[in-house]
């Protein structure tokens, strides 16, 4: 056959560390933390070969042999260069449940990094507004960790996070640490009344609507259930932000994460390759179409 096909075959073998695109790389669970009644954060370290470093916003395909494999965004410190990975998983199905039930010492399979990143480096010198809903706080945590590690590179940093109840707020200790910092503004709000909570009660768009923004100076990172992202983007647009400065993290069914299985399409986008982070100028029209 033609030469370029042969070189593709060679490249295929070389690209995925001598293995195949779909072959998981074994990682051991070295840390496990229960964030809420149905969310667990796992710290993973490679058993042998490490994967390339993950950027904030990217995801891994996590496999429990015999059960299945799902796409999970990284939720940890992006500057870690020891090959370790941090992922926060919510128990919503068979595979996520199996992953949540792993314990330190267990081995799971990991493939990645896949997908587009939040592009924190393109927001240098600007205000960062991070809007998270529910478990959406996990994929944006690396933005905060990365920005705080180079705090002077950014102007304002604002986190607006909503959850159903105080018990379902993730990373509560870290949220408190961030809120205590004078160089970060943290607005937390819960949807449902809860005893013992003296913070804000209301949907995440409510504190968002009251933010004073310099729209031309701001980059917004929005993550959570799709309607929450639409409603939040609507508030940000009404404040004068350009759609291209609002970045959302989108989700669809993924079987491979690598652009081969065709499942994660959203119109013209393959979310494993053109996403999950997509700017709202591209995403808005697509999210408005039912059953796309």
């Amino acid at each position: 056959m033609s030469a370029d096909i042969q070189s593709t075959a060679a490249a295929a073998v070389e690209h995925d560390g001598g293995g195949e695109t779909m072959l998981p790389v074994p990682h051991r669970v070295t840390g496990r933390r229960e964030e809420s009644h149905d969310c667990v954060t796992l710290r993973l370290e490679p058993c042998g070969r490490a994967l390339p470093p993950f950027a904030p916003g990217q995801f891994a395909m996590l496999a429990r042999p015999g059960v299945g494999e799902i796409a999970i965004s990284i939720s940890g410190d992006p500057s870690a260069r020891d090959g370790s990975l941090t992922n926060t998983i919510r128990d919503v199905g068979a595979v996520s449940r199996a992953l949540c039930r792993t314990r330190p010492g267990h081995v799971i399979g990991v493939r990645g990094p896949y997908g587009t990143s939040w592009g924190l480096d393109t927001a240098v010198g600007r205000d960062l507004v991070i809007v998270a809903g529910g478990v959406g706080l996990a994929p944006v945590r690396p933005i905060l960790l990365g920005a705080l590690a180079a705090r002077d590179a950014y102007r304002r940093i604002v986190l607006v996070a909503g959850a159903r109840s105080p018990a379902e707020l993730l990373f509560r200790d870290q949220l408190a640490d961030w809120a205590a910092r004078p160089d970060v503004a943290v607005e937390l709000t819960i949807d449902q009344p809860a005893a013992g909570w003296d913070g804000a009660v209301g949907f995440v768009t409510e504190p968002l609507a009251q933010l004073r923004l310099a729209p031309a100076q701001t980059v917004a990172f929005v993550c959570g259930p799709e309607p929450m992202m639409r409603f939040s983007a609507s508030v940000l647009l009404s404040k004068g932000m350009a759609a291209g400065d609002i970045r959302v993290s989108l989700e669809r069914n993924m079987k491979c994460g690598a652009g081969l299985c065709g499942h994660c399409q959203l119109g013209p986008l393959l979310l494993c390759r053109d996403g999950p982070v997509v700017d709202y100028a591209r995403a808005q029209a697509l999210l408005d179409v039912r059953e796309l």
């Binding site: 056959m1 096909i5 042969q6 593709t8 075959a9 490249a11 295929a12 073998v13 690209h15 995925d16 195949e20 695109t21 779909m22 896949y114 690598a258 652009g259 081969l260 390759r273």
Partner: peptide, 15 residues
Amino acid sequence: GGGAHPDAAFARRRA
């Protein structure tokens, strides 16, 4: 075969 993560088995068969 042409993406960032090729299907190596496909590429071998086609080669």
